[in-house]
Every structure is written in C-alpha cells, then in structure tokens.
Write a protein that binds this DNA or RNA. Structure first.
Lengths: 137, 137
DNA sequence: TGTACTGTAATACTAAGTGTTACAGATTGA
DNA sequence: TCAATCTGTAACACTTAGTATTACAGTACA
C-alpha cells in the first residue's frame, strides 16, 4: 500500500485541529515530514472529492469542508488506494488448468477482501482519529 | 502487496492437483508464468513451515504435506506477506501534536485491519480454491 | 506590483520487486 | 564412478512504483 492514504489521513487530521483557519501545504508537510508538493497532490484529490476547500494567494491554504464525524477512513481509502490489495499476477499459462483459472479466482477473493476491509475502515471517522491522537496509548 | 502470496497459492494449488507425485519447480513456474528460481524461493518458505515436502535429485520435486482442507489462505498470508498492509509512514514531526501521535494511531488501526483481513482469509481453504478453479465463474 | 499562496507538469532519485546467472549439494540410474 | 536431474541459495542485473525536487503558471491580497 502506498502512503497517499496515510498522508491524506494525516492532512485531514491536521486540518481538523484548525477548523477555524486555513493551513498551508508547507505547514502540513512539515508536520507529516514530506515534501509540500506531495501534500498538495494529495490535498488536490481530497478537494476534488469535496472533503476540503482551498484558496490560492496570500493568506490562502486548505480548510476542512465537511463534518468531522461524517468522513470515515473508507471514504479516504477509496479515493487514494482503491485496488491496492489486488496483487498483480503475471499472465499465467492458459494451457494449465491452474494457470488458466487462478487469476479469476484470486481477483474475486481479493475483491471480497477489500470489501471486508471497507467494513472495518468505515468504523473510523475523522472525529475518532482526532480523539485517538489525544488519547494516551 | 507483493505477489509472493499469490505465487504461494498458485503453487500449492498446482501441488494439490498432483497429490500422488512430485512436481518440479520448472513445471510450476511454467504454470505460473514466472522464473523457476522465484518459485523455489517461495516453495522454500512453504517447506520451512511444513506445508510441503521436497526432494532433490532426479525424480525429485515438491509435494503437498498436509490435508487440503486444513490449510487456509490466512496461514499462507502470514508467512508470505504479514505486515504488508502497514504503510510505511515517514518520520513525522514530534513537535506537532498530529505528527507526534499519528504513527501510533495508524499502526494500531492497520494492525486491526490485518486481523480483520485474517478473519476473511481464514474462510478459504486450499480445498475451496481447488473447487473454485474448476467451477465456472 | 511584489509577495504568498495553490496547481500541476516534468524530471530526477530511490527503494522494492522481479528476473537471471551461477554454482554447490543431493539423488538417481546407467 | 559418472552424467543427468533435481533443489537450495547467493549474487547481481533489470524494471517499475514510489517519492522528492525543480520549475513555473495562475490566483489573491495588501
């Protein structure tokens, strides 16, 4: 799994603690320890899906656009990492009964796995994450 | 997720259809469409964990060592891919409340996710996979 | 009009995954 | 005993995905 998912969570959590003002990609990138351009790419995705708003120019930045408890981790997973579970099988041998059918079988199993993961991730809202950030252990 | 997991499943399924004789890494690699050395590496792992037996020399190869219905996909996942869900977060900023705590929060969430995935994978035994290979769609 | 932002393309760098070669060790059969 | 056929594994090369960096256009504000 690439880290866009965790960067998105990190960014949104950061914004969640600054609901009253805009935050710059520089500030968020410093908190997350990655390059500002990377953060802007991830935030650009989040914006396209309506989770945040942005404003260019002096005093601009990013700000949360939804209710904290109505955004969950599955929402974020879907736009940053959907299909990440699916391992890429090389083209196997059609002349062999295993090779010819394995891909179809595995794809279905991994689709199921991702759905299953979704059920788990849906239980975590951004509000939960903020609470966990403050809770010791 | 790397493809060791699916290669292991592929190999074991192949062996499951040849329970009465040994199969060579060459034969399996041809079915799976990857290099024989790669297959041997994966099979080496499976052997170390007692899923298969091997024999060197002429007429040698690999053979299943367990009951088909007592090996499930979670067993295989654990030895090939455990921790694969865990995205690597870059070291974030300890001076920021989000940076300082995010890693701990995410690690716990992903541990839970992997456990959850385990519950799903446990429901598929190798016997199920063999049945699915033969079942249309 | 200068400064501080976002938005994004292009490119370079790095790490993980995969393929390949090489060769030692085991086993078999002639 | 010798050649052939396997596994076992290390070493290295290649490829691709992930990430960082540079560059610059566009927007907003003072």
């Amino acid at each position: 799994m690439n880290s866009d998912f965790t960067l998105a969570i990190h960014s949104l959590t950061y914004l969640a603690l600054q609901l009253d003002r805009m935050s710059t990609s520089d500030a968020i990138s410093e908190s997350a320890g990655v390059h500002p351009v990377r953060i802007r790419k991830v935030l650009s995705l989040l914006k396209k899906h309506g989770f945040i708003k942005s404003k260019e120019g002096t005093g601009g930045g990013f700000i949360f656009a939804r209710d904290l408890s109505e955004v969950n981790l599955w929402d974020i997973y879907k736009i940053t990492s959907e299909g990440a579970l699916q391992p890429k099988c090389p083209d196997s041998n059609e002349a062999c009964v295993v090779g010819a059918n394995m891909q179809r079988v595995l794809i279905n199993i991994f689709l199921g796995a991702e759905e299953h993961l979704g059920e788990y991730l849906k239980h975590y809202t951004l509000k939960d994450i903020v609470d966990l950030i403050y809770k010791e252990n």
